[in-house]
Design a protein around this nucleic acid. Structure first.
Length: 261
DNA sequence: AAAAACGACAACCGCCGACAC
DNA sequence: GGTGTCGGCGGTTGTCGTTTT
């Protein structure tokens, strides 16, 4: 007999802006502790797993979103050649990207591209070639298509320059900033966000290490974000300029002064 | 203009390992 | 050592917008 899903009697499907707001507010206020208790504490009719996924794949302030760059695309292909379908490990090398995002990109786009180049996406070898055979250069390949012979270097830090990535970012720093601004205007309190033990290059799944603390009482009335524009608009939030030992997050108002651990 | 096909992305499902008791 | 819970992961499905017929 199959085990019942943990979400049997709970709400499923797409998340509403109100649900997003509740989850985001809860995690910003209390941080991530036990996911199974998050729905109850946040007033959500969702299972903990669903909340975790929503946070990791959509609500986290450090998500990059937007289309993949050529460098990211090349890196995914190269890493897939070595790691296979270990999406979380691959995503760990791409700052601001989630395993789900990488997996979707691979399945919907990269697999097709590789086949068009005559490369088997499963083996990264030429399509007509025996599996055990020596890899030969594909005459049709050009540019970055020479991946079959391209050496792969594991960089403990992301392949993309952090600042560059930061400039490309149109992610939920916006959301964070709107939330943050709302809190400030409403209460005038100092808001500290301390992503404990979070370092770039870690898997998205490690986002459970986020420990966010907000000083002061926060009511829902302080949440004044606009769900529709949170991805489209960048409102002055800045990414940290990363120092390997201590990074400082400068939200545009400057209230935040926390350090990465 | 309507229907079908397609593509991109969000979310769910079930398995597994780690951990606590 | 056995059992239950939890979080993480990868595969798969569902949803919705866009393009094609």
């Amino acid at each position: 007999m199959r085990r019942q899903s943990c979400c049997m009697k709970l709400r499923k499907g797409l998340w509403s802006p109100e649900e997003d707001e509740k989850l985001f507010a809860h995690i910003i206020r209390f941080g991530v502790g036990c996911w199974s208790s998050v729905p109850k504490l946040a007033g959500l009719q969702r299972c903990g797993k669903s909340c975790r996924l929503r946070w990791i794949n959509y609500l986290r302030p450090d998500l990059k979103r937007g289309s993949f760059s050529q460098e990211e695309e090349d890196l995914i292909i190269a890493l897939h050649q070595v790691l296979g379908n270990r999406w979380s490990q691959i995503a760990g090398q791409l700052p601001g990207r989630t395993d789900n995002e990488v997996k979707n990109f691979w399945n919907s786009c990269l697999k097709k591209k590789l086949r068009q180049r005559g490369i088997d996406p499963a083996t990264h070898k030429a399509l007509n070639e025996p599996v055990s055979g020596e890899v030969k250069p594909n005459p049709d390949n050009s540019g970055h298509d020479n991946l079959q012979t391209k050496p792969v270097f594991f960089n403990p830090f992301p392949a993309l320059d952090f600042q560059e990535a930061a400039e490309q970012t149109e992610g939920n720093m916006v959301l964070y900033d709107q939330f943050h601004t709302g809190l400030y205007e409403e209460y005038g309190n100092i808001v500290d966000i301390v992503p404990g033990s979070y370092a770039y290059g870690e898997s998205s799944s490690n986002s459970s290490n986020w420990n966010c603390g907000v000083n002061g009482i926060v009511g829902n009335e302080a949440l004044n974000w606009n769900h529709e524009i949170k991805i489209e608009t960048l409102v002055g939030a800045q990414w940290p300029s990363v120092d390997a030992s201590a990074a400082r997050w400068e939200v545009n108002r400057g209230e935040f002064d926390g350090d990465f651990l």
